[in-house]
């Protein structure tokens, strides 16, 4: 099965989401300590690994690679632990949505990778929700818009 022509666009959008996620973990990490900071570092590394893989995949596929930006607008100011955890939840859930959008245009190993990202980010969002004391810990349809 060959992927439809908009597969490259879905991957490019996922890459932009990964750029923003990596950027967001900067202000998140500095507001956290101990195990939570360590978790933020692990999360950031996961987003960097997916960014790197996407850059390679898009450039070897001959598609355009969207550039990273110097900064990204945060949905709210990150001023303390609570807002940092809140943003971490949002980063994971929003990035998950972009990988969910890759699923219909992918097949085989590429689909497995997209599902792996969606699952990993949904699980990490649940962990951040627990840290933040957010109830419920899960959403019914991770990555679904709206």
């Amino acid at each position: 099965m060959t992927a439809p022509p908009d597969a490259g666009e879905a991957l490019a959008q996922a890459l932009i989401a990964e750029y923003a996620a990596i950027w967001a973990y900067g202000p998140i990490g500095v507001r956290l300590t101990g195990a939570e900071r360590k978790a933020a570092i692990t999360a950031e590394a996961a987003h960097r690994a997916r960014r790197d893989a996407l850059v390679v995949q898009l450039s070897t596929g001959g598609g355009s690679v969207p550039p990273d930006r110097a900064g990204y607008a945060l949905p709210f100011p990150v001023t303390d632990r609570a807002s940092a955890l809140q943003l971490a939840v949002q980063v994971e859930e929003r990035t998950a949505a972009f990988w969910r959008a890759v699923l219909p245009t992918s097949a085989g190993a590429e689909r497995d990778r997209a599902l792996g990202a969606l699952v990993e980010y949904a699980v990490r969002a649940t962990r951040w929700r627990r840290s933040a004391g957010i109830s419920p810990l899960t959403v019914a349809f991770p990555g679904r818009p709206g």
């Binding site: 998950a96 969910r100 959008a101 699923l103 219909p104 997209a114 599902l115 969606l118 699952v119 980010y121 949904a122 699980v123 969002a125 649940t126 962990r127 810990l137 899960t138 959403v139 019914a140 349809f141 991770p142 990555g143 679904r144």
Partner: peptide
Amino acid sequence: ALLGSITAARASHLE
């Protein structure tokens, strides 16, 4: 996409 969300939901339930 629906099945991806269901997979992710069940994985997050485990957590």
